[in-house]
């Protein structure tokens, strides 16, 4: 064998062995258990904290409001659609306040007149004309909007 190869071949073999050793030690623990990824990352994603509690949780304390809501057109609505995430609120006995939106603009997100919305799906009003200067909840009970106050 030429002297060059006598020197180069072992060098390459050492290089490849070194690479394999590095590969062995640097590959994360659960990598490749189920597929070409870190299997434990699935559990990591699963363990992320939730923020929205879900209606069942609300119902544990506010069954009266949930019942009111369920009586007619807002029956499909979840509490947290308007009140925002409520898990911290629920888990701390109501210490953490939840959102109570009162502005016309908030109701308008769903109910403002828009020809892109199907009238079969949602009641729409022209907020530029309808009782301007008043808040929606001055007249409508948001949990039972079909009943007018006063």
């Amino acid at each position: 064998m030429p002297p060059q190869l006598k020197r180069l071949l072992p060098a390459f073999i050492i290089f490849i062995l070194l690479f394999l050793v590095l590969k062995y030690y640097l590959t994360p623990e659960t990598f490749g258990e189920k597929g070409h990824y870190r299997y434990s990352s699935i559990a990591e994603v699963q363990n992320i904290d939730m923020k929205y509690a879900g209606m069942d949780k609300c119902n544990e304390c506010h069954d009266d409001k949930v019942e009111e809501l369920g009586m007619d057109v807002h029956a499909d609505l979840s509490c947290e659609a308007c009140h925002g995430p409520g898990l911290t609120h629920a888990e701390n006995d109501g210490d953490y306040e939840i959102l109570i939106p009162t502005e016309r603009e908030f109701c308008a997100l769903c109910h403002s007149k828009n020809i892109s919305r199907s009238t079969r799906i949602i009641t729409q009003i022209n907020i530029l004309e309808h009782n301007t200067g008043k808040k929606c909840i001055d007249c409508h009970n948001p949990h039972m909007p079909w009943e007018l106050k006063e």
Binding site: F19, L22, L26, T27, G32, H36
Partner: peptide
């Protein structure tokens, strides 16, 4: 960067 060499996704 080393991950590209250690766990290349075929």
């Amino acid at each position: 960067f080393y991950e590209i060499m250690i766990t290349p996704q075929p």
